[in-house]
Simulated assay, not measured.
Amino acid sequence: MQDLRIGIIGVGVMGADHAERVVRRISGARLVAVSDPDLPRANALAESLSRPAGIAEQTGAANGSGAIRVIGDPLDLIADAQVDAVIIASPGFAHAEQLMACLEHAKPVLCEKPLTMDTESSLRVVEAEHKLGKQLIQVGFMRRFDPEYAALKELLDSGELGRTLLLHNVHRNKTVPDTFRSEMIVRDSLVHEVDVARWLFDDEIAKITVHAPKPTGLVANGALDPQFAILEMASGAIADVEVFVNFQVGYEVRCEAVAEKGSATIGLGVDVLTKRAGQWGGVVPEDYRARFGTAYDIEVQRWVDATRRGEIDGPSAWDGYAAAAVCTAGIQSLQEGRPVEVEMARKSEVLG
Rank of each mutant, 00 (worst) to 15 (best):
V22L: 13
E349R: 01
A128T: 11
K153A: 05
G330N: 08
P40C: 10
E20V: 06
A234H: 13
I298C: 12
L99V: 08
V22P: 06
Q248I: 04
I205Y: 10
T216E: 11
A151W: 08
E183M: 10
E286F: 15
I26G: 15
A345I: 03
A81F: 07
L136W: 10
R143L: 12
I26Y: 08
D36C: 05
D195L: 08
S50H: 06
E336Q: 15
A61Y: 13
V342K: 00
D195Y: 07
V340G: 06
E260P: 01
E129D: 13
A44P: 00
I137D: 00
P285G: 02
K347W: 08
A44M: 02
N169A: 05
A62S: 11
L99K: 01
L224H: 13
M1Y: 10
N43C: 06
Q58W: 13
L75A: 11
V283Q: 12
F141G: 00
A237G: 12
V13S: 08
V13W: 10
C111K: 03
P114M: 07
Y288M: 13
G352V: 13
S182A: 07
K174G: 14
H95T: 02
D297Q: 14
L39W: 03
I6W: 10
G159S: 09
H95A: 04
G66E: 00
Y296I: 13
I68W: 02
I208G: 03
V70E: 13
S35P: 11
D225Y: 10
Q58P: 14
A46V: 04
Q82E: 12
D305G: 03
G262K: 00
G278R: 03
